[in-house]
Amino acid sequence: MVGVRAGEFRHIYDPSEPDRRWYINDHTLIQDADGRWHLFGITHPEPPDPFDETEFAHATADDPHGPWTKHPPALTVDRERGETHLWAPFVVHDGDRYFMFYDGGGTDRTATGMGLATSTDLFHWTRHPDSPVFRDGYDARDPMVRRIDDRWVMYYCATSAPTGGNHIVAYRTSPDLLHWSDRRIAYTDPATGTGAGNTESPFVLRHADAWYLLIGPRPDYAGTEIFRSDNPFHFDTSDRVGHVPAHAAEVITYDGAHWITHAGWGQGGVALARLLFAR
């Protein structure tokens, strides 16, 4: 059995200003065609106020370890579109465009809108005419998108029924990042509820001959649990192979290794550590 753990976390980026502390929560990192890294994420002054999170942080660096340069917000909430907040961006590249998926909220938390904005340079973003690309609940959020075989797959957290139930990791597939299938379920947790749950921040990666799902907070705020499977569309509680002291964890590949991030309320920005697979 493969065990998974993290090395030492080191802070790489703090968005705070001299007179005010700011946090980064759910976030994403992507490297552009010139090799520069971009970080996008939920941001807000401390103390936390999730329903007042209305802009996405943007920072760049030549190396994910920093130093990072802070830029103006990448996106701000669009009330005219019915957005009530901006949560959990995830960015992928396809063709000549970058696609940013995010939770734009809405007045009905059982039918949250999964928003989409596009860009050609990662600095200037425009909402796609089809945004939101679908709706789901309860507070369906934290999208993570990757290519598996001949299709795009979006994982996100929701509940077994839009009005509540077991916390789950749902997924949908798409041929073009615009048209998405009905949802299916990749993981069902024994815990139940409506809003925040322990299947937040799902991240799916492949290492060697296996698939790994990261979710959290489990069991505490700064806690991410890792599950292993031979099938990227099915994970079970019995598949648990690791625990990392991180919140809103994302994984990047850099310098021939996997690295895992940690951020969140009161965490002093974003930290980075090696993700280690040991037999």
Rank of each mutant, 00 (worst) to 15 (best):
L29K: 02
H207Y: 06
R97I: 07
P162L: 09
D239E: 10
H262Q: 05
H27N: 06
D52C: 07
E225M: 09
L276E: 15
A208S: 13
I12Q: 11
T199W: 11
D142Q: 08
D220F: 12
Y98C: 03
T194M: 02
D182G: 15
I12S: 07
L116A: 01
L178E: 07
R172T: 11
R240G: 12
D130T: 13
H258K: 05
L276R: 12
Y155P: 11
T60S: 15
G269F: 02
F134Y: 12
E55L: 14
V77G: 01
W87G: 05
V204L: 01
T253H: 15
E80L: 04
W259M: 00
W180V: 03
T110G: 00
T60G: 14
V91E: 09
Y171K: 00
I168H: 04
R274M: 00
H258V: 01
Y155L: 11
H234D: 08
W152Q: 11
G164E: 08
L275V: 08
A208Q: 15
F101I: 05
W125Y: 00
M1H: 13
R20V: 04
V241A: 12
A196R: 08
S131H: 12
R109P: 02
G104P: 13
F233C: 12
D94Q: 06
D136A: 13
R218K: 14
M154N: 11
A117T: 07
R5N: 09
F40C: 01
R135T: 14
A222Y: 13
E55A: 14
P50V: 11
P245H: 12
S229W: 11
H247S: 15
T107C: 08
G66L: 02
A210N: 12
F123K: 12
L178M: 03
G216Q: 08
I30R: 02
T43F: 06
R21D: 07
F203N: 14
Y155D: 10
G164R: 07
L86M: 01
P202S: 01
D121N: 14
D130A: 11
F233E: 13
V241G: 08
T192C: 06
G264M: 00
W125C: 04
D209N: 10
I30G: 05
Q267F: 03
C157G: 03
G113D: 00
D96Q: 08
